[in-house]
Design a protein around this nucleic acid. Structure first.
Length: 627
RNA sequence: GGGCCUGUAGCUCAGCAUGGAUAGAGUGCUGGACUUCUAAUCCAGUGGUCAAGGGAUCGAAGCCCUUCGGGCCCGCCA
């Protein structure tokens, strides 16, 4: 069992006693005590009944406590009433610790069946394939990947999609660069192709549009060719975007992120999806052909608020940006006949197959849709995403639901902007691919890797280079992933290059270090911990605290899945590591006073190590054995 | 003008959904702990008008209202 059972036992007992005493039913809280001196668990029922019963909270709690003491379950050893009015419980230490440690040996420890196998789609990344991933994209990718992992742990059947906008303006820009801007198709020696496209070609061409009119004209032409397909230019575009995509995916894989299927915008455009959705919207009266005013001749989405109507199809018959997203949203929910076949893109590092859509008949039909679709995009897109959500709900697709998981953007600190020759006057600055204002993800990982390599070498001079490189990369990725996920989605992250190199305090490496310490204790013990024994000897505050932290895992998984709040798992990992480090400093394991004590503490260390590893896995962070 | 987000310690942030015990971390600064299971660690100290004002409540950082500061979005661009 975990702490959850203790909560449940107390909750139902208090409920029953309150009923037996003739008290009115109230929704009361059973939660962990805010301070150790208050016991393990606290209940606020006294406060809630104070008014209806016209008694002091402590008086009510006392009457419940008196009865509780006569009929304690197996998990509670003490019931106390604090003068403030709280009803406090102390757990039966030996039963609690033993059951937590034993459950933690189960392979699926921490799983909680919130989803009941519900089919869920998580779409994230979806970066235009004309540039390398920068640190802002990384936040999207890490949020999406972490949410997918957590939902999976909470028993949702998750499909992860990456939408590739291979026929948009941004791709057209680099194609113009190659065909008419004089850029070689091959990057200079040693440069990744995506970096080359983004850092050199894209930025340069965008600048030249200002002065070279002919280039700007080519841009319109190329865009048209890309949308229509078939032509030589379109084929060339396809070749380029696939090369960029492959490089982008390498960065994602480096971050430990994998996908189930790649969706290509060009194929959505050329499929029947748009026509079907367009007709459906017409027949539902969601959209109409504007006959007058400034939008005359356009198909527009009716707005029921004070906002202006949103144009879906221009007067020249070409669909707008949002129009491409609606059929895709409907496809993700599986409310349209699937026009695609599927073929394998690659087998990813974790042996998971990455599929891609195709319009060719491959004979392979698969289902990557879900009854619930979560689209991870930064909150600047909220307005458009709300429109899509509204339209999809108008399709009346039963229990199916579409939602936008938004998050605030990543900006660059004044100091980091300065390294890009940008003077911001002390303010942080929004990134922009077009203007070249960004920090590439690979670059951050590389310099982090150099630092973590040095640190690892300093501490483990006897390790061979390959091991050190591996550890360094794991720690670098851990540092970056943790930094991107630990704070609330609604908070802007101001990225500072120097600060990102900090590996102490509330960071990924701090947590990974706790794991490595635990592994070393287990290694040095030279024997396997034996669990079928009494753990009554684990009584110090450090041992109890660590055991309770371990017992909280499934509750954290449930919370974070229910609220789509990945940071809760990050906070949990940190809390586990803090508990362990405190234990480590105050309690000796290998030199404990008796073999029984050594074994009991080894079990605790083992449980901690396994639980932390599983929790870190939800964050996509590796737990190295040494560092 | 409208919409979304945000304001808590010098700095970066938890806590707010579901009101309750002395508002917590990290970082910074000051001091202490490595012949010890790895000091990427631990311990102690320092640091707060929870933006401001009002309201409902026995009780507010949290709920309601108003105001102020900061960010983002509102194109026949994507």
């Amino acid at each position: 069992m975990t702490l959850r059972l203790l909560f449940n036992e107390i909750r139902s007992a208090v409920q029953k006693i309150s009923f037996d005493l003739g008290y009115p039913a109230v929704v009361f809280d059973v939660s962990e005590s805010s301070k150790p001196e208050f016991g393990d668990i606290s209940c606020n029922i006294g406060f809630l009944l104070a008014k209806p019963l016209k008694k002091r909270p402590s008086e009510i709690s006392e009457s419940i406590a008196a009865l509780y003491r006569t009929q304690k379950g197996s998990l509670v050893s003490e019931v106390n009433v604090h003068q403030s009015g709280y009803l406090n419980f102390t757990a039966n230490n030996s039963v609690l610790v033993k059951s937590i440690l034993e459950s933690s040996t189960e392979k699926n420890y921490g799983e909680f069946d919130l989803g009941k196998g519900a089919k869920t789609v998580v779409e994230h990344t979806s970066v235009n394939p004309n540039k390398a991933l920068h640190i802002g994209h990384v936040r999207n990718i890490i949020i999406g990947d972490t949410v997918a992992r957590i939902l999976h742990k909470a028993n949702y059947d998750v499909n992860v999609l990456n939408y590739v906008d291979d026929s948009g303006l941004q791709v057209a820009d680099i194609i113009v660069g190659f065909l008419y801007g004089g850029f070689s198709k091959e990057p200079p020696q040693g440069q990744k192709f995506d970096h080359y496209c983004g850092d050199v070609v894209y930025v340069n061409i965008t600048e030249r549009y200002e002065t070279e009119k002919s280039l700007a004209e080519k841009r319109v032409l190329v865009l048209k060719e890309l949308e229509e397909g078939r032509s030589e230019i379109a084929k060339f575009g396809d070749e380029i975007t696939r090369r960029v995509l492959e490089e982008q995916l390498k960065t994602c894989w480096r971050l430990g992120v994998t996908y189930d299927c790649l969706n290509f915008e060009s194929q959505i455009i050329r499929s029947s999806l748009w026509k079907t959705v367009f007709d459906k919207m017409k027949s539902l009266g969601i959209i109409y052909l504007e006959g007058e005013g400034k939008n005359s001749g356009c198909w527009v989405i009716k707005s029921d608020s004070v906002e202006e109507d949103k144009i879906l199809v221009r007067s020249n018959g070409i669909a707008t940006y949002i129009a491409k997203d609606i059929p895709y949203a409907a496809w993700k929910l599986g409310i349209l006949d699937d026009p695609f076949h599927y073929k394998q893109y690659i087998v990813q590092k974790n042996h998971q197959v990455l599929w891609q859509t195709t319009l060719e008949d491959t004979g392979t039909r698969l289902d990557f849709t879900g009854d619930r679709v979560i689209t991870v995009i930064d909150s600047r897109q909220s307005r458009l995403q709300n429109i899509i959500t509204k339209i999809i709900s108008d399709f009346k697709s039963g229990k199916k639901s579409y939602m936008h998981l938004g998050y605030e953007s990543v900006t660059l600190s004044p100091d980091t902007a300065k390294t890009l020759n940008l003077e911001t006057g002390g303010k942080s600055v929004q990134m922009s691919g077009r203007k070249g204002i960004y920090v590439n993800a690979d670059y951050v990982l590389d310099i982090l890797g150099v630092k973590t390599y040095e640190e690892a070498k300093k501490r483990n001079p006897e390790l061979d280079d390959a091991s050190l490189v591996k550890i360094a990369e794991q720690v670098a990725v851990g540092a970056l992933r943790y930094a991107m996920i630990k704070q609330d989605l609604d908070k802007i992250i101001v990225f500072d290059l120097t600060e990102s190199l900090s590996l102490e305090g509330d960071t990924g490496p701090y947590i990974q270090y706790a794991h490595a310490r635990a592994v070393r204790i287990l290694e040095k013990a030279g024997k396997t911990p034996e669990f079928g024994v009494s753990f009554d000897c684990l009584t110090t505050i450090h041992e109890r605290g660590l055991a309770k932290a371990i017992g909280r895992f499934d509750i954290q998984v449930e919370d974070s899945a229910r609220n789509l709040s990945p940071k809760l798992i990050a906070r949990y990992c940190h809390e586990l590591a803090v508990s362990f480090n405190s234990f480590y400093e105050h309690v000796k394991v290998l030199t404990a006073e008796s073999p029984e004590m050594i074994n009991a503490r080894l079990c605790l260390v083992w449980s901690f190590k396994e639980t932390l590893r599983k929790a870190l896995d939800l964050l996509g962070i590796d737990a190295p054995d040494r560092m």
